[in-house]
C-alpha cells in the first residue's frame, strides 16, 4: 500500500492509501479529499485538480514537477501556479511515491 497525504489550505491532513497505477486525482476522489474537484474526470481538460508537490518531495524526486505541454496549457486555467504545481490527474502513482505529500490550493475555480 502506498501512503499519500493531501494537505488542505487550512493545514488539515488527509491521509490516503493508493495503489500503483491510480492517478493522484483518483486517489483524492476515492478518499473524498476536499478541494480536488476534477470536473472533467481526468481528461486534462479543466485544471480543477491542481496540487502543489511538497518541497521535500520536489528535492527527492524532481521528475514529480515535470509537466507535459498539455498540462502546462491547462495550468493557465489554474490560480496561483507555482514551480511545483501539477494537475493531480496527470500524476500516476508508483511504488516509490510511498509517503508523498501534496498540498491542495485555496480554490480550484
Amino acid at each position: 500500500m502506498i501512503k499519500i497525504t493531501f494537505i488542505g489550505p487550512d493545514g488539515k491532513k488527509h491521509e490516503t492509501e493508493a495503489q500503483e497505477g491510480m492517478t493522484l486525482m483518483e486517489v483524492a476522489l476515492k478518499n473524498m479529499v476536499p478541494g480536488i474537484e476534477a470536473d472533467c474526470g481526468g481528461a486534462c481538460a479543466c485544471a480543477t485538480c491542481h496540487v502543489y508537490v511538497d518541497a521535500d518531495w520536489v528535492a527527492k524526486k524532481p521528475q514529480l514537477t515535470q509537466r507535459s505541454e498539455t498540462e502546462e496549457d491547462m495550468l493557465d486555467f489554474a490560480f496561483d501556479v507555482r514551480d511545483n504545481s501539477r494537475l493531480s490527474c496527470q500524476i500516476k502513482v508508483t511504488d516509490d511515491m510511498d509517503g508523498l505529500i501534496v498540498h491542495v490550493p485555496e480554490q480550484q475555480g
Binding site: 474537484e37 470536473d39 479543466c46 485544471a47 480543477t48 493557465d76 486555467f77 489554474a78 490560480f79 480550484q108 475555480g109
Partner: peptide, 13 residues
C-alpha cells in the same frame, strides 16, 4: 492601473 478587468480562466460547473 485597471478600471476594467477581463478574466479568461476557462469554465467550471
Amino acid at each position: 492601473p485597471a478600471t476594467r478587468l477581463l478574466l479568461f480562466f476557462g469554465l467550471t460547473n
